[in-house]
Amino acid sequence: MWSRVRRAGIVTALALPCSFIAVQSAHAGLGGAPMTPPTGASVSSRIVQPGSSAVNAAQSVMRSASNAGSSATASTSYTVRETALGNGTVVREYLASDGSVFGIAWRGPQMPDLNDLLGNYFPQYVAGVKAVRAARGGSRGPVAVDQSGLVVRSGGHMGSFNGQAWLPPALPAGVSGSDIQ
């Protein structure tokens, strides 16, 4: 007969790799797949044509749906996926036609986990923040990391944070960093 300790050890050994897989699949970020929404989050999506405003976004969705067979529409439209987290923070992910995230924006009472949102670009962001802070004498405050392959702007104060991040080389035709809001 197996002892309780030995059985618990075997169960833990079998369950541990599965838990790592679940945690890893929940992480997505800039340059990759959209994030997996946490439990309790609400998600909505809309298709946007470059140059369209928020006022006519609904018209853009209808235009994109009616022109789905048009190669011009498919190559220039992108999707904005908005996730409202349980803590009140809203994260917008900007998805290219291939489903990869080329931009992210956030606003709300709490900072989202930038390690998750920026994915593989997080170390580059941290290095950029250190360089910016070193250049201004270590002071805190809004941060702008502006590099050829990554732009991140983050600021706010307790209870009101906001920011944007995007990959300049990955922006679809007709889209600029100012569209990431």
Results as ranks from 00 to 15, higher is better:
residue 2 W to Q: 13
residue 4 R to H: 14
residue 5 V to W: 09
residue 10 I to D: 10
residue 13 A to E: 06
residue 15 A to S: 11
residue 16 L to K: 07
residue 16 L to Q: 04
residue 18 C to P: 07
residue 20 F to H: 07
residue 20 F to M: 08
residue 21 I to L: 14
residue 33 A to D: 06
residue 34 P to A: 01
residue 35 M to E: 03
residue 35 M to A: 09
residue 36 T to I: 09
residue 37 P to C: 03
residue 37 P to M: 04
residue 40 G to N: 04
residue 41 A to Y: 04
residue 41 A to W: 02
residue 42 S to I: 02
residue 42 S to L: 05
residue 42 S to C: 02
residue 46 R to M: 11
residue 47 I to V: 15
residue 49 Q to M: 13
residue 49 Q to W: 13
residue 50 P to M: 10
residue 50 P to F: 11
residue 52 S to G: 10
residue 61 V to R: 07
residue 61 V to M: 12
residue 62 M to V: 15
residue 64 S to V: 12
residue 65 A to V: 13
residue 67 N to C: 12
residue 67 N to T: 11
residue 68 A to D: 14
residue 68 A to T: 09
residue 72 A to M: 10
residue 77 S to I: 12
residue 79 T to K: 13
residue 80 V to C: 03
residue 80 V to W: 03
residue 81 R to M: 06
residue 83 T to S: 01
residue 84 A to I: 02
residue 84 A to P: 04
residue 85 L to A: 08
residue 86 G to D: 13
residue 86 G to S: 14
residue 87 N to T: 02
residue 88 G to A: 15
residue 88 G to M: 14
residue 90 V to L: 07
residue 93 E to P: 00
residue 95 L to V: 04
residue 95 L to D: 01
residue 97 S to C: 09
residue 99 G to W: 02
residue 100 S to A: 09
residue 103 G to P: 01
residue 109 P to M: 07
residue 109 P to R: 10
residue 110 Q to S: 12
residue 111 M to L: 15
residue 115 N to Q: 10
residue 117 L to N: 02
residue 118 L to W: 00
residue 119 G to L: 03
residue 120 N to T: 12
residue 122 F to I: 00
residue 122 F to D: 00
residue 124 Q to I: 10
residue 124 Q to S: 11
residue 125 Y to I: 06
residue 127 A to V: 05
residue 128 G to A: 03
residue 132 V to S: 08
residue 134 A to T: 14
residue 134 A to P: 07
residue 135 A to T: 07
residue 135 A to N: 08
residue 137 G to D: 11
residue 139 S to D: 05
residue 140 R to E: 09
residue 148 S to G: 11
residue 150 L to D: 01
residue 150 L to Q: 05
residue 155 G to Y: 09
residue 156 G to Q: 05
residue 161 F to C: 08
residue 161 F to S: 04
residue 162 N to H: 11
residue 168 P to H: 03
residue 174 G to L: 01
residue 176 S to M: 04
residue 179 D to P: 06
residue 181 Q to D: 12
